[in-house]
Amino acid sequence: MRTKGWATRVAATLLLAVGVVAAPAGPASAAVNVAYNFWTWNVAGAKINAGSTTNGMIGVAARSIVNRDADFAVFNEICQTQFNALIAELRELGYPQDSTNFARFTPATPKGACAPGDAKGPFGNAIFSRYPLDGAQRWTLTSDTTGEIHSLTCVNPTAQPKMHFCGTHITAEQTKDADGNLYSGHQLADVLGQLEAFNNSGHTAVLAGDLNAQPHYGRLNGFYSSSLNVPNNSGNTGAYRELDDNDSGNCLGYGEWTATRPNVNNPTPCGSTLTKIDHIFARQSRIVGSYSGDSLGISTDCAGNAATSEYPAGSCSDHRIVIGSATVSIG
């Protein structure tokens, strides 16, 4: 396990400007290389867990965050009551450096929409951080006309204002605009535009969440780096790497599946009909050295959750937890 102290985890690199006049050269900018562990999970807080805070899902999530030594964690489809319960559980486990300032919630539905017939509040997306946070930045994405609000939320540690960790949940609807373009494509373009804006300002951003798009879909070509050109994932024009895309043991350029949802009409290039729609992206030019990602088996420790044709009884979600590690250059 890596040491959690900030000072011991940062490798600083001083970038010196070369002067063109006979004056002493001075620092042009200071960059730091920081190793982070990332974590993301669509918990199906309403669909499968019915807004419950006592069926085991909260404990499974909190223990995984701590056991995986996650610095940042994104949740999709989490009820606000579950978000509050996770705050309490993570405090109990000693996870945050500042127990009063480490979590942010962004609703996607009106109050009372978490589970039918209850008052558990909205469900939406959440971000947890080991480090104290500045206030979250939020952008509303192009509407898919369903009434659900899709958004991008980004946070940064107070000690590292140029490092942004972002979470989103792209629509799964296949609705299209008047020109026949998927609204999900518009939403992904909105997200990518903000990531690029961070980069153009000299900042570093890492994105995690359920993008409802598989790696070989054309609407992700603008994300994946043009240097990634393999049979399983080609035609890319972007500048980012998904942290599991170097997994040659499962599906090089693609990674492991993350959701139980079958997709027989558009199977993965490696043969599986299960989908990879949960991702962690970092800009390739900001990654220092190697990086890695993985998806974890779905826990069956959530008592009372009924079995379906897609997952067994007790399943805590129909999505896997996705983790990743990378050292990124900031500044």
Score class of each variant (00 low, 15 high):
residue 54 T to D: 15
residue 55 N to A: 12
residue 57 M to L: 15
residue 59 G to Y: 10
residue 59 G to R: 13
residue 61 A to N: 13
residue 61 A to Q: 14
residue 62 A to P: 10
residue 63 R to P: 02
residue 63 R to N: 15
residue 64 S to F: 04
residue 65 I to M: 14
residue 66 V to S: 03
residue 66 V to H: 03
residue 67 N to V: 02
residue 67 N to C: 01
residue 69 D to Y: 00
residue 69 D to L: 00
residue 70 A to Y: 01
residue 70 A to G: 02
residue 70 A to L: 04
residue 70 A to D: 01
residue 71 D to A: 08
residue 73 A to F: 13
residue 74 V to L: 02
residue 75 F to K: 05
residue 76 N to C: 13
residue 76 N to G: 11
residue 76 N to P: 01
residue 76 N to Y: 07
residue 77 E to P: 09
residue 77 E to Q: 15
residue 78 I to K: 12
residue 78 I to M: 14
residue 79 C to I: 12
residue 80 Q to M: 03
residue 81 T to G: 06
residue 81 T to R: 15
residue 82 Q to E: 14
residue 82 Q to N: 12
residue 83 F to V: 04
residue 85 A to Q: 07
residue 85 A to N: 08
residue 86 L to Y: 14
residue 86 L to P: 12
residue 87 I to H: 06
residue 87 I to L: 09
residue 87 I to V: 14
residue 88 A to L: 15
residue 88 A to Q: 12
residue 90 L to C: 03
residue 90 L to I: 09
residue 91 R to E: 11
residue 91 R to H: 02
residue 92 E to H: 14
residue 95 Y to K: 01
residue 95 Y to A: 08
residue 96 P to F: 05
residue 98 D to R: 07
residue 99 S to Q: 12
residue 99 S to V: 11
residue 100 T to N: 13
residue 101 N to S: 06
residue 101 N to P: 07
residue 101 N to A: 06
residue 102 F to E: 08
residue 103 A to D: 05
residue 106 T to L: 05
residue 106 T to A: 13
residue 107 P to C: 08
residue 108 A to H: 11
residue 109 T to H: 06
residue 109 T to K: 08
residue 111 K to R: 04
residue 111 K to V: 08
residue 112 G to L: 02
residue 112 G to W: 00
residue 112 G to M: 00
residue 112 G to A: 03
residue 114 C to W: 04
residue 117 G to P: 03
residue 120 K to W: 08
residue 121 G to M: 01
residue 121 G to Q: 05
residue 121 G to F: 06
residue 121 G to V: 07
residue 122 P to A: 04
residue 123 F to E: 13
residue 124 G to L: 06
residue 124 G to N: 09
residue 125 N to I: 13
residue 125 N to P: 01
residue 126 A to F: 08
residue 126 A to V: 11
residue 127 I to N: 02
residue 127 I to M: 03
residue 127 I to Y: 01
residue 127 I to R: 00
residue 129 S to P: 03
residue 129 S to N: 08
residue 132 P to T: 02
residue 132 P to W: 04
residue 134 D to Y: 10
residue 136 A to Q: 13
residue 137 Q to K: 06
residue 138 R to P: 00
residue 142 T to P: 06
residue 145 T to F: 11
residue 145 T to Q: 15
residue 146 T to P: 10
residue 146 T to N: 11
residue 146 T to Y: 11
residue 146 T to K: 12
residue 146 T to G: 10
residue 147 G to S: 10
residue 147 G to R: 09
residue 149 I to G: 05
residue 150 H to V: 08
residue 150 H to E: 10
residue 151 S to N: 14
residue 151 S to H: 05
residue 151 S to A: 15
residue 152 L to E: 08
residue 153 T to Y: 01
residue 155 V to K: 00
residue 155 V to T: 09
residue 157 P to G: 03
residue 158 T to G: 14
residue 158 T to P: 00
residue 158 T to Y: 01
residue 159 A to V: 01
residue 160 Q to A: 02
residue 160 Q to D: 00
residue 161 P to A: 02
residue 163 M to F: 10
residue 163 M to K: 02
residue 164 H to M: 01
residue 165 F to A: 05
